[in-house]
Design a protein around this nucleic acid. Structure first.
Length: 283
DNA sequence: AGCCAGGCCTCAA
DNA sequence: TTGAGGCATGGC
C-alpha cells in the first residue's frame, strides 16, 4: 500500500492559524480520549500544551481553528496530513466497530513529544485520567520552564532533578521510583534520538527495558508518539471489551486484534477505548 | 464504603 | 513462561 493514498490536504495554514476541516476532526473527542493529559476546556474553546508549546483551539460551524506560535508543529501534532475518512470508512466494515467508529468520528491520533509521552504513560499505570492529569500538571508547574501563561513540560535535564519524594508529593505513589529511574536512563542514553528510527518491534523491545514501562505503556508510546499505528495497547477497557472464552489473556486479545485490524489497529483501538468509556459513563 | 483506574514489578514454581 | 500478590492515591 502506497503511503500517499492516505494523505490529504484538508487544512490551510495562514501565519499563526491553522484552519482544519471539522468533518474528521472533533477537538473534544481528540483531547479527552486519554492520549494526552495537558489540555483545558473553556466551553468549546480548548487549550493544549505539548512539550514547550501551546495552542488554542476554536471552532466555527465547519472549521477547527488552531492558534499557536508554531503552526508546523501542530499540523504534525494533530496528524493533519492523514486522511481519517479513508481510515474510518475502512474500519467501519468490521461489524464490531461500526458503532464505535460512528460515535468516535473525529478522533485523531496525535504525534506527541516522545519524552513527555513516556513519562506521562508511566504515570498512567493503574491510574485514572483525572489523577494522571493532576500529577503531570503538578510536576510541570514545579519543574517546567515558566512560559508566561503556562509551564512547559520539564526537559530531559530537568527531569533528572525530580526526586522520588517530590514525585510522591505530586501523587505519583508507587510509580515514583520508576520515574526517577527512567528520567535518568533517558538522560544518560541515546534512546530518545534512537527510537524514532526504529521499527515497531524494536521500539517495544527498547521501551520495555525502562522501569515502569511494560507492554501496554510501550504500545501507547509507539502509537501516540512514534506513529506506529499498528500498535494496539490493551488496557483494562480494551481487555474487558475484547475478551472471550478463548481470548482470555491480554496477550491473546492483543494478538488477535492486531492481526485482525493490521496497520489500522491503533486507530481501531482508540475508537473502542472511547466507545467503551462513554458507554460506561452514561449508565 | 468499596471498587476501580489507559499496569508494572517482584517472586515463586 | 505464566500466575499471584502488592502497590499509592483519589475519582466516582
Amino acid at each position: 500500500m502506497q503511503p500517499f493514498n492516505f494523505i490529504i490536504m484538508s487544512y490551510n495554514v495562514s501565519k499563526n492559524l491553522i484552519y482544519a476541516d471539522k468533518e474528521y476532526f472533533d477537538p473534544y473527542l481528540t483531547l479527552t480520549c486519554g492520549q494526552l493529559f495537558r489540555y483545558k476546556c473553556f466551553g468549546d474553546v480548548y487549550e493544549v500544551i505539548s512539550a514547550d508549546k501551546k495552542c488554542v483551539i476554536k471552532q466555527t460551524n465547519d472549521t477547527v481553528i488552531i492558534d499557536s506560535n508554531d503552526s508546523e508543529y501542530f499540523v504534525n501534532y494533530f496528524d493533519l496530513n492523514t486522511d481519517y475518512a479513508k481510515i474510518s470508512n475502512f474500519l467501519k466494515n468490521f461489524p464490531e466497530l461500526t458503532c464505535a467508529v460512528e460515535s468516535g468520528k473525529g478522533i485523531r491520533i496525535l504525534r506527541q513529544d516522545l519524552y513527555e509521552t513516556i513519562i506521562s504513560f508511566i504515570i498512567s499505570a493503574n491510574n485514572n485520567i483525572s489523577r494522571i492529569r493532576k500529577i503531570i500538571s503538578s510536576a510541570c508547574l514545579a519543574h517546567g520552564i515558566n512560559m508566561g501563561d503556562y509551564h512547559a513540560f520539564f526537559t530531559v535535564k530537568q527531569g533528572t532533578q525530580i526526586t522520588e519524594q517530590q514525585w510522591r508529593s505530586y501523587g505519583a505513589g508507587f510509580r515514583a521510583p520508576y520515574l526517577v529511574s527512567t528520567c535518568n536512563e533517558l538522560s544518560s542514553k541515546s534512546l530518545l534520538s534512537d527510537l524514532p528510527k526504529m521499527d515497531y518491534f524494536s521500539c517495544i523491545n527498547a521501551l520495555t527495558q525502562l522501569k515502569g514501562v511494560g507492554r501496554k505503556v510501550a504500545d501507547c508510546v509507539s502509537l501516540f508518539a512514534l506513529a506506529h499505528r499498528y500498535a494496539y495497547p490493551v488496557d483494562t477497557w480494551i481487555f474487558k471489551s475484547g475478551k472471550t472464552d478463548e481470548l482470555n489473556t491480554v496477550e491473546k486479545v492483543r494478538n488477535y486484534y492486531t492481526t485482525r485490524y493490521g496497520e489500522f489497529a491503533g486507530y481501531a483501538q482508540q475508537y473502542i477505548f472511547n466507545f467503551s468509556r462513554t458507554k460506561s459513563k452514561s449508565k
